[in-house]
Amino acid sequence: MPQITRDSLLTLEGYAKVRPTMRAEIIAHKKTRMVELGGHVTLIFEDEKTMRYQIQEMLRAERTFEEAGIQDELDAYNPLVPDGTNWKATMMIQYSDPDERKAALARLKGIEDRVWVQVADQPRVYAIADEDLERENEEKTSSVHFLRFELDATSIAAAKSGAAIRMGIDLSAYTVESFTLPENVRAALVVDLA
């Protein structure tokens, strides 16, 4: 899968001109790549388009135009672009009440390693979490994690042939039984596979 390069990014001025249109497109695009697991966990499956937008937004917010700063953003976000044999997702744990969130994050330690996907009747594939840095400590897990689901050739072929894709979480403190992805989400994720 193609990586985002310095030459493929818009300048700050160029991005300012297309930002409202691009933002609307990304919001619509993410709706087909979003999975809610239970009432408090949301996964957004990333791709080149979502990461390109994120990089452009970071460069805009930080007013970055120097080569080193641009390269730092590319180095941070390119690893979140799927490479053809996997799906990559940002997982957010959301509780609106701060006290409830604090208690939940303590109770949900390890959740990032218990999220799974399953294509057809193939074995479940558990997430490989936070490869860039540890986001959990002795007291709690983080409210944001980055997950990678590495698929074998059989699962890839089954997904591409239209097989159902299921997801779930099997942490005792937060269990989501097998949830079949809607067709629009399944179709969006298949595009990420080589």
Rank of each mutant, 00 (worst) to 15 (best):
R186D: 01
Y174I: 07
Q71E: 15
E67T: 10
D83E: 09
L151P: 13
L105R: 11
I44W: 04
D47H: 02
A187D: 09
T5S: 15
E177R: 09
P79N: 02
Y15Q: 09
D7C: 01
R63T: 12
I44L: 13
V185A: 03
D121R: 13
A106L: 07
L10F: 07
E57A: 06
P98L: 07
R23L: 13
I26P: 00
F149L: 06
I27C: 00
G110L: 09
M34W: 02
L193C: 11
P79Y: 12
S143W: 01
Y15I: 08
T141K: 00
D47N: 11
V191H: 06
G110A: 11
S178R: 15
V176D: 04
E36Q: 11
M92T: 14
A28C: 08
A106F: 03
G168W: 10
S155H: 08
V119T: 06
V18M: 06
D7V: 00
T85E: 09
Y53A: 05
F45E: 02
A61N: 11
P2I: 10
A163C: 14
D132L: 10
A153Y: 03
R186G: 00
G69I: 01
T85V: 14
T11A: 07
L189S: 05
Q71D: 11
K88G: 06
D132P: 02
P123F: 10
R19V: 00
E73G: 00
E36K: 14
A163F: 05
S142H: 00
F149G: 00
L171S: 10
T64P: 00
A103V: 13
V35W: 00
K17W: 01
T50I: 05
W116M: 01
E131W: 04
I44A: 03
E36S: 12
F149R: 05
A103W: 15
I93K: 02
Y95R: 15
R6W: 04
P98C: 11
P79G: 04
N86I: 01
V115M: 07
A163T: 03
S172Q: 12
A68K: 14
A157Y: 05
A127H: 06
S155I: 06
K31H: 10
H40E: 11
A173I: 10
L193P: 09
E66D: 13
P20Q: 04
V190W: 02
A103S: 12
D170Y: 07
H40G: 04
T85D: 09
V176K: 07
M51L: 13
T32G: 13
D121W: 12
A61I: 10
V191S: 05
T64D: 05
G162H: 00
N86Q: 13
Y95F: 14
T21V: 12
A68P: 03
S172N: 08
N86D: 13
L37A: 06
I111Y: 03
S143M: 03
E136I: 11
I4M: 02
R19C: 00
L189I: 09
H29D: 01
E73A: 14
S8A: 15
N78P: 06
E136H: 09
G84V: 08
L193S: 07
A28G: 10
L181R: 02
L12P: 08
A173D: 15
I70E: 02
K49L: 07
V185E: 07
M1A: 12
I70V: 15
T85K: 12
L171C: 06
G69M: 03
L181M: 08
M167R: 00
K102D: 14
R148N: 07
L74F: 02
M91N: 02
Q118E: 14
